[in-house]
Write a protein that binds this DNA or RNA. Structure first.
Lengths: 218, 218
DNA sequence: ATAAAAGTTTAGGGTTATCTAAAAAATTAT
DNA sequence: ATAATTTTTTAGATAACCCTAAACTTTTAT
C-alpha cells in the first residue's frame, strides 16, 4: 500500500518517463514535485524498496511493471474524478485539476468501479486525455500538435497538452473545445499564429504557443 | 486551516460532546479515536492553540463556537458524500462509512456546494442523520428510541443510532429502512424484543438491542 | 481523612516527509 | 586530460502525529 505522497511521486515519474518508457532524473522529479533533490533521493529509496521503480545511484529511475500499474490506477482515478466534476457537477475544465489531485488518493476499489459505471465508462477526460480501464488499458489515438498541421483539411481537436487554468480559459474564451472540428485558414509568418475556422462558423486567431499545446487528429 | 487529523479529532469531540453541549474527557476521545491518552493531550493542545476548543488541564475540553462551525462542516461533507454514494453510486448503506471518512477531508468549498446542489439539497443522510446546510444549520426532529415506544400507533423509522455495518445489514435483512412506517404488535417480556409490522405488510421480530438503536417518531 | 485506583500530563522516542549544507559523482569545457 | 561546473547523495535537522513509561492530579473506597 502506497502513501499519499508515494502515489504522487509515482504518478510524476510515470508522466515524466513518457508512460514508463524512459528513465527519469532526480532533478526532473524535484522540479515537477516542487521539492528538493535531496527529498527526491529519499523517496526514490522508498519506492525502490517497494519495487515500484528501479534505482541505480547517480542514474535516473525507471518505473517497474508494478509501479506502472499503480501509477495507471492513480491516473485512472484522477481522470474519472475530473470527468465526474465536469459532467455531473458542472465544473468548468479549468477548475477541476486541484480537486482531482485530492480525490485521486481516496482508497476504495468499489468507489472507483461504481464511479466509472455511473459515468458510463468514459474513455477520455475533459482535457481529452485517455482514461485507463480497470486493467490499466486505454486507447492511444495518434495525435499531433496543431502547430504541425497545414493545408485545408478538417482537423479535430482531441486534447490539451498543458492543463493550466489560464490556457484552458483562453481556449474557452476563443471557442476552442475538445471535439471541435476546425480548418486552418491561414498561418501568419510573423509570429506563427494560426487563423482557424471552428465548426465552419467562427473565425479566431490562435497563438503559436497555443497551437503547440493543442493535440489534434487530421 | 485544519489538518486531516485535526479535523478528525474535532469531529469526534463534537459528537462526544452532544453537538458541543458538554465537556469531553481525554479518555473518551482516546477511546473513539483509537489512540492513547497521551496522543490526545498533544492534539488537545494544538486544537486549543487554534481556538477550536477550550482546555483546562485535568478537566475535559469544550468545543468553541469556531470549533463547532468547523466540525459542522466536516459533518456536512461526510453526510453529503454518504448521500451521494447511496443515491448516485448505489452503494448500500452499510458500505458508505469508510469511504465517506476519506471524502469528508477533501478541501474545496466549490465542490461541496456543487455536490449539495447535484443531490438537490438533501436534509438527511442515508442513516437518517441531519445534514447541516452551508451555514451549519439543520433541522432537529425530536426522535426517540423504538425501545421507548408502546401501543398501537403508527411509528416512523427516522434514523439509526449506531451505523455499524453488521447492524445495518441486520436491518436490511429484516426489511427495516429509514422512512418505514411500523406498528408494534407485541413486546416480548422475556428478552425485550418487539414483534413489529412494517408498512402493514411484513411481520418481523426486532431484538431489544436493535430497538434501542432505532430512532423513531410517533 | 487518607490510601488506593483511575485518569491525565509530561518526558523521551519513533516514523514519515520535508529541508539545508556538505560531500561525492558525473558531466562539460578548456 | 584535467579542471570547473552541475547533479546527486549523504548527513543532520525539523514538524506532525503517534507511542511507552513515569510523574502528577483527581476520584473512589475504606
Amino acid at each position: 500500500m502506497l502513501s499519499y505522497t508515494e502515489e504522487n511521486y509515482l504518478k510524476a515519474i510515470y508522466h515524466l518517463s513518457g508512460s514508463g518508457a524512459k528513465a527519469v532524473l532526480t532533478s526532473e522529479i524535484a522540479e515537477t514535485m516542487n521539492t528538493r533533490a535531496a527529498s527526491v533521493t529519499d523517496m526514490i529509496k522508498k519506492l525502490s524498496a517497494k519495487n515500484m521503480i528501479s534505482y541505480e545511484k547517480y542514474y535516473g529511475v525507471k518505473i517497474t511493471r508494478q509501479g506502472k500499474a499503480e501509477a495507471l490506477m492513480v491516473v485512472r482515478k484522477h481522470r474519472l474524478w475530473e470527468t465526474f466534476l465536469v459532467q455531473k457537477l458542472h465544473f468548468s475544465w479549468d477548475e477541476v485539476h486541484d480537486v482531482a489531485e485530492q480525490l485521486e488518493h481516496i482508497q476504495s476499489a468499489l468507489l472507483i468501479e461504481k464511479l466509472d459505471e455511473f459515468l458510463e465508462f468514459p474513455t477520455v477526460d475533459p482535457h481529452g486525455h485517455p482514461i485507463p480501464d480497470k486493467t490499466g488499458k486505454f486507447v492511444e489515438v495518434r495525435q499531433i500538435p496543431l502547430s504541425d498541421c497545414s493545408g485545408k483539411k478538417k482537423i479535430t481537436i482531441r486534447a490539451v497538452r498543458n492543463g493550466s487554468p489560464s490556457f484552458l480559459q483562453y481556449l474557452s474564451k476563443n471557442g476552442v473545445y475538445i471535439g471541435a472540428i476546425i480548418t486552418i485558414l491561414e498561418k501568419i509568418e510573423f509570429d506563427g499564429s494560426l487563423e482557424i475556422m471552428i465548426d465552419g462558423k467562427k473565425k479566431v486567431f490562435i497563438s503559436r504557443e497555443a497551437s503547440q499545446n493543442l493535440l489534434v487528429t487530421e
